[in-house]
Design a binder for these strands. Structure first.
Lengths: 261, 261
DNA sequence: AAGTGGTCTAGACCACGAC
DNA sequence: TCGTGGTCTAGACCACTTA
C-alpha cells in the first residue's frame, strides 16, 4: 500500500479523506455542481495537490451520501476543465499543475483587466451604415442592409494597444458610448441576454500602414497582429463581425488549449 | 401544431422520426457512442438540418430501446461538440450551421494537409544539446540537462512557410528524420503512446530579421507570425517546447472556438 | 396546463490496468 | 486476481418554457 511507482511522480493515499464537503440539499444549486465547486476550490488552494488521488467513486459517493452517477457528474465536469485525469485501474488524480486558463472568446478588455493593466476605451465611431459585401456575408444579412459599425481604440496606461472595428446587426443591442468605454462588448451582449455559442477566428500579421501607425502610435513598418472574428449566438445567428489590429510590440495572444482525446 | 414562430427560423416537427438508427449491442463500441456517431453523420449529411428538433429524450429512448441516461449521454457529447443546443421547455435542436472545426492543438502539418496544400518538411537540425535556461524552465528539466532540439523548415508547393524549432526531453521519443519529413510531430508522439493533455500558447508578430528573411524567402522587414508553445501529456509532464515563425504573407491561424456557458 | 430538459437515485455488469 | 473507472438500466421528481 501507498506504493510509490515513479518517485518523481509519487502518489499518496487518497487525499479526499480529510476533506469535508458541505452539500446543501435545499439549495437550488445542483448537488453535482456544489461538489464540483468544492473540489475545484480544494485544488485551487492546494488542499488537493497535483498527483493526489481522489479516492474511488463508490467510496466517495457513500461518504457524501450521493449516488455514484452524481459524483461522476461532478468529477466529469472537472475532467472537462482539465483539472482532473481519470485512469482506469488507477483512479482519478489531480492534474500536474500547469492548467490555469482555458481559451475564452478572447475579450481584450477582460484580458487586460485580468492582467491588471487598467484598460481604457475610446469610442471613435458608433453609427448605422449600409453593410458592405464582406460584412453582409459575415453577418448573414443582405448587402446594403443597415448594420452598426463600432470603432474603438483600446488603451493601457494611456497608450494605444489596439484598434477594434466591429459590425453588429442593427438593433441587436443598445450600444451606449459611455457603457462601451467602461466595459467590454461581450459583457454588454451577455447582459442583454445574448448567449454566445461559437466564433470563427483568423489570426495573422502584417506591416502597419502609415495611417495605422499614426493612430496606434507606432512607426511605419512596425509589425501588427491582426484578428478577424465572427461570433454566433446559440440560435446560429451571427451577432458580431470584427477586424482588430494590435500593436505586436505591446500585445500577444496568450492562451491554453485542452486536447480532446 | 407544427407552429412556426419566427418564419426565418421555422422549425418543423421532430426530424428523427424517419431516421433509423442501427445499434449493435454486441459491439464493443458503447451504445451512447454509436448513437452519437449516427446522429453526427445525420447532421453532417443534412438529414438533420439546422434548426430541426431532435424529438424529446423520453420518446427517443423508448424508440431506440435505450434508457434515457444513455440517450442523454449521446446527445450531450454532441452538445459539447457544438452541434446541438438544448433548451429547457423547447427541445434539442441542430445548431444553425457555421460549426465545423474546433480548434485543435494547431499542427501545421495537419492544417496544411487538410487544406490540400501538400506539405513538405526539411529537417535542418536534430540532435541532443544541453538545455538553455529558457528551455529548461519550459520543459521542467535542470538547466544543462540534455534535450533534443529539432529544427524544421515547412514548405508548401516547394515554398517555405515556416521555421519550426522544437525542444523535447531527451529520450522521450525516437525522432527519425525520414519519418519527421513524412508526417507531423504530434502524430509521431501519439503513435508512441503519448497522450497530449493541454498546451499553453502565445501568438504574436514581429519583423523578420535579415537571417530569417533569407531562410524563409521573405524580404527584410516582412511581417512574421510567431507562436511559442509548451505541450503537456496527461501526467503533467512537459513533452514539447517550441518556437515557430510563419510567413504572414502565406499563413494565418484559422480556428473555431466554442463558448463555455 | 402541458411538454421539455435538468437532476438524482440505487443498483448492475463489464473492460482495462496493476500486481 | 483485484480494484478502478466505463457503461447501462428504469424509474423519480423538479424547473423552466410556451401557450
Amino acid at each position: 500500500m501507498a506504493k510509490t511507482g515513479d518517485p518523481a511522480r509519487a502518489v499518496t493515499a487518497p487525499a479526499t479523506g480529510a476533506l469535508d464537503f458541505a452539500l446543501d440539499r435545499g439549495s437550488p444549486v445542483p448537488l453535482y455542481y456544489q461538489l464540483a465547486q468544492q473540489l475545484e476550490a480544494a485544488i485551487e488552494h492546494g488542499v488537493l495537490a497535483p498527483g493526489n488521488l481522489l479516492g474511488n467513486e463508490v467510496d466517495l459517493s457513500v461518504r457524501l451520501g450521493l449516488s455514484r452517477p452524481t459524483v461522476r457528474q461532478a468529477i466529469q465536469s472537472l475532467v472537462d476543465k482539465g483539472l482532473l485525469v481519470r485512469r482506469r485501474g488507477v483512479g482519478t488524480q489531480v492534474v500536474h499543475s500547469q492548467v490555469k486558463r482555458p481559451l475564452e472568446l478572447s475579450s481584450l478588455y477582460d484580458d487586460l483587466e485580468a492582467a491588471g493593466q487598467g484598460p481604457g476605451t475610446r469610442v471613435v465611431r458608433n453609427e448605422g451604415v449600409p453593410a458592405a459585401a464582406e460584412v453582409a456575408a459575415a453577418l448573414g444579412v443582405a448587402e446594403g442592409a443597415e448594420v452598426t459599425v463600432l470603432e474603438r481604440l483600446r488603451l493601457t496606461h494611456g497608450q494605444p494597444v489596439a484598434m477594434l472595428c466591429n459590425y453588429l446587426p442593427a438593433g441587436l443591442l443598445e450600444l451606449d458610448d459611455a457603457r462601451l468605454e467602461s466595459t467590454g462588448l461581450y459583457r454588454m451582449m451577455r447582459a442583454s441576454g445574448i448567449t454566445l455559442h461559437s466564433a470563427r477566428q483568423t489570426v495573422g500579421a502584417r506591416i502597419a500602414s502609415p495611417g495605422e501607425a499614426e493612430r496606434l502610435g507606432e512607426t511605419e513598418g512596425a509589425a501588427l497582429l491582426t484578428m478577424q472574428r465572427t461570433a454566433y449566438d446559440d440560435t446560429g445567428r451571427a451577432v458580431e463581425y470584427g477586424t482588430h489590429v494590435y500593436r505586436a510590440s505591446r500585445y500577444a495572444f496568450d492562451f491554453q488549449l485542452l486536447v480532446r482525446n
